[in-house]
Design a protein around this nucleic acid. Structure first.
Lengths: 231, 231
DNA sequence: TAATATTATGAACAGTGTTCACATATTAAG
DNA sequence: CTTAATATGTGAACACTGTTCATAATATTA
């Protein structure tokens, strides 16, 4: 009996239509400015119908954020890029973080939703769901560990701190770009490249860092409980 | 006749009450979650009354952003800090950017409104009004120029690029903190300090940078016309 | 064909930013 | 002191928002 299967396919199709419409509208108009009614109109359903597929507008965001992490998630693919397979580990680090920055260009709204926007439901609410995203961070730490093992970064360096520093730098450039704080002539790509090289040079220089290593929970997303700075 | 003066004082008092209420509510609940009605209720006025003082909710934000820039604006004061008066120029750079980061801690909502949030009216809409904020950036560039002149940074370094790199790094840390992307045990202060030292070390290392110098319009806020990524 | 489970809908609720005619003071002029 | 003029605050309303729910329509099963 393929009827139940077809039912599930139909549901999946509508669900996809909702997500596609929501994504397109978010990319075009920003999360805050997209209403359930607009999404409903786009897919020619009633606003209430959407609530048969997603319990809330927040949940539509979570579904899209998951897609976003999987889109970005191919730094794992970068890791297996044949061209980079036998490149120096430091080049792979460069590639991974460059991809992080490029993602902020290619998918600015995804990036903003995932890493910047504060008026968006906190991903930490869905702790389990985004476990795979935490694993990505762990991979990067391993790559950095490889750099240290290969002697391309000082042995005294904490790979977790290095990951944070690189993330912070490129995130900063991305935010400057996304929040339109760069002067008209400024090239954010060049700035991102400079920040990447600058931070790597700083890491190589072996300055004494203060941040303690974090072996446990070395990930972006905090534990699910706290919500101190509630909105 | 002090009657007109008293009138102006009265208006100023109500205006201040609105801003104070708005600021407190923004700090407590976030810009997006504060309604004109909530502000009105707080000051025991009708919602419509507020529109006699500010033409829109956006304009309340602009007024607060201006306050925020003036609060932060004391890196100019840092510049004249007697303790730093005869300190090496590089230490004054450190102080200025550390203050930038500290501001993100002490006034997280101000900081978010001014530098991060994208669901807030673009400051570039009020180009003239925030000219003084652009001057602050110029001061920092001058400080960096002094570092180069003093031989504490390479002569090949473009001070404007250096400013951007330092801004990006600390902005990144601030965003990591504000968007709650740090693991529970992570200390963002230490990370900020590390990023600051790391970037300075990178700058000292004299890596070849690509970003071209920008003598004209070397400021955060773009020209007032463009609004391509409209919401 | 009749009963049953899904699914979509219109209407409504409580909230939002904003506008506007109207009432209400407060000041200036006669 | 009374009257005209000028601000200033208000309630009601408009067009939105996210969300809920009883009802209607549909498709599947018996």
């Amino acid at each position: 009996m393929g009827i139940k299967e077809r039912h599930e396919r139909d549901r999946e199709a509508v669900s996809r239509a909702i997500l596609d419409a929501a994504r397109e509208l978010f990319v075009a108009e920003g999360f805050q400015n997209v209403s359930i009614r607009k999404i409903a109109e786009r897919i020619e359903y009633s606003p209430a119908a959407i609530y048969g597929y997603f319990p809330s507008k927040d949940d539509i965001f979570f579904a899209l954020a998951e897609e976003g992490f999987r889109l970005l998630g191919d730094p794992a693919a970068v890791r297996q890029d044949p061209q980079l397979q036998h490149a120096p580990p430091i080049e792979r680090i460069r590639a991974v973080f460059w991809r992080f920055y490029e993602f902020s260009r290619e998918q600015p709204q995804y990036f903003a939703l995932m890493f910047v926007d504060r008026s968006v439901p906190r991903i930490s609410r869905e702790y389990e769901r985004f476990a795979f995203a935490r694993d990505l961070k762990q991979h990067i730490v391993e790559e950095l560990r490889a750099c240290i093992a290969a002697g391309e970064l000082p042995a005294t360096l904490d790979p977790f701190v290095a990951m944070r520093a690189l993330t912070a730098g490129l995130l900063g450039v991305a935010v400057l770009r996304l929040s339109e704080r760069l002067a008209p002539g400024e090239n954010s790509d060049l700035l991102a490249s400079d920040v990447l090289n600058l931070t790597l040079a700083g890491l190589r220089a072996g300055v004494t860092l203060q941040s303690p290593a974090r072996v446990d929970c070395p990930l972006d997303i905090p534990a699910p409980i706290a919500d101190a700075q509630a909105s």
